[in-house]
């Protein structure tokens, strides 16, 4: 067998290994620990942070900033304060499939209209499939998206959700710190 053959086989094996799926035998314990985390965070009046924190089913990825908190009067970013993530023009969230069932997404966010100088439209795509969009965001800058993701759009164990905004107020090749749009609530669950 030539080196080329070996390389092809190795690549195929690693791809298979990386992409393997199947029932998670430890799912119950994962649920228990996330339930505990939710309970304790709520007791500590920090439950808002969990709304924009990665979990076993939601992974915030490229295009999002780190989890941020509003500052206390003494400029300390306490984790019990309002929590949010700044996002760029395309922000990715990886979402775990529940199998062949429709899912729902809820996103709450805010646009800094004074800085951006326009009213952006925010759209959702799951693995390239258009799912939903907002009207041009105006008013106080707050927006909310409630969308249903049909089961046929979920073809992988984990799908890639792109939150796209049609304007960030800057040329894409000259990106400043994109502190113009953030989200402060993200939910992912079964639609029915």
């Amino acid at each position: 067998m030539s080196a080329r053959h070996v390389a092809v086989v190795a690549l195929a094996l690693s791809a298979a290994a990386c992409g393997r799926s199947g029932a998670d035998p430890y799912a119950e314990e994962v649920k228990q620990r996330e339930a505990l985390a939710k309970r304790l965070m709520n007791e500590a009046d920090a439950g808002r942070a969990l709304l924009v924190t990665s979990t076993s089913e939601v992974q915030f990825g490229e295009g999002f900033g780190k989890l941020s908190f509003e500052l206390d009067p003494d400029q300390h970013p306490s984790f019990t304060n309002h929590a949010f993530r700044w996002m760029g023009q395309n922000a990715h969230v990886r979402l775990k499939s529940h199998g062949a069932v429709p899912m729902k997404i809820r996103i709450d966010g805010w646009v800094h209209l004074k800085v951006i100088g326009t009213q952006p439209v925010i759209q959702l795509f799951v693995d390239g499939v258009y799912i939903a969009q907002t009207d041009p965001v105006g008013g106080g800058g707050h927006f909310r998206i409630d969308a249903r993701v049909p089961e046929w759009a979920i073809r992988r164990p984990w799908v890639d959700l792109v939150i796209h905004t049609n304007a960030v107020g800057f040329h894409w090749g000259d990106p400043p710190e994109l502190n113009v749009i953030n989200i402060y609530r993200f939910e992912w669950g079964e639609a029915n």
Partner: peptide
């Protein structure tokens, strides 16, 4: 460790509940 519940690294988010528990 309570703050690690919302850490960006999965390793800490996964482990922190065990220690607090």
């Amino acid at each position: 460790f309570l703050e690690l519940f919302v850490n960006e690294q999965e390793i800490w988010r996964a482990y922190a509940p065990y220690l607090v528990d």
